[in-house]
Amino acid sequence: MSEFVYTAVVSILQLLVVLLLAPLATGIIRKTKARLQNRRGASVVQPYYDLTKLFKKEVVLPSTASWIFRFTPYIVFGSTLAIALLVPTIATPVPFHWIGDIITVIYLFAVGRFFVALAGLDTGTAFGGLGSSREMSLASIIEPAMMLAVFTVAVTAGSTDLSIIVSRLSFTPVSIIHPSHLLAFVGLFIVTIAETGRIPVDNPATHLELTMIHEAMILEYSGRYLACIEWASQMKLFVFMALIANMFMPLGIATSFSFVALAIGLGAFIVKVSILAILVALVESSNAKLRLFRVPELLMVAFVLSLLALILYFIIGS
């Protein structure tokens, strides 16, 4: 019985944390950026208002689009939320950790990306194709870099299962301090910036055709569809931050099922994610957007560093 309660409570908490806190993280980033630019900025809860408003609005469908365009928002939302079930946020192990390991998580991200890129081409406009071409090209370096960085930690913990990685590392926090983890961390941070479309790789706040990447693909989305996609990308950023937070600083995460432990876990998690959000905002504010063809060079740094992390770990060992 308690097994069932644990499964239900933690899974629902897990989903709710990602669903409900993801817009907050985006709000924090925007607020911090505004403050750094000497603006007051919108309130940190503004993303929630945006989403509810978008959910109520009518959808304008491009007349050229097919069913792929209409299905994509739901697929993206669903696949991102499925990842939320697999990545530990406030407690570990998550009850459904056996569904998929870190490789599954990375390929679930790829599912969402694949469909958004198709939707970009589906509209039949130049911008859509431009966005999907750029997104898929950059992803071809981002994805392996991410995989290698995460594998480095996975090999340390001796498992590809995220919950087991986090559990093991939270019991022996010293094993996280390893030279190759520094490399993996730098790699994963660059990947996070790139994958979630942040400056200096992409600018989430612009619709200028020369620089758009992610925004160009979803240019034709509106209303509820746009809400799904926006929410999904906020969750994606959130999940990435959760990954970094719990893999490299697993302190505080709940490892037992009790109210106190979960509360501590939630508190620690919010603190960690807020720190990361502010870090992302700092990077965004202190860098200029790179030219598109300079971006692969930055991503290559992430790729090479992550590769070195894995090789160093393989060669040096623990």
Binding site: L81, F96, D161
Partner: peptide
């Protein structure tokens, strides 16, 4: 490899269930 595993069937069930979620939310 430390019980790294994958369960595609359950994954499909969850994917379908969670894809329906935005419909309900909407």
């Amino acid at each position: 490899s430390g019980a790294g595993g994958v369960s595609p069937l359950t994954l499909v069930i969850f994917l379908v269930a969670l894809t329906v979620l935005p419909l309900v939310l909407g």
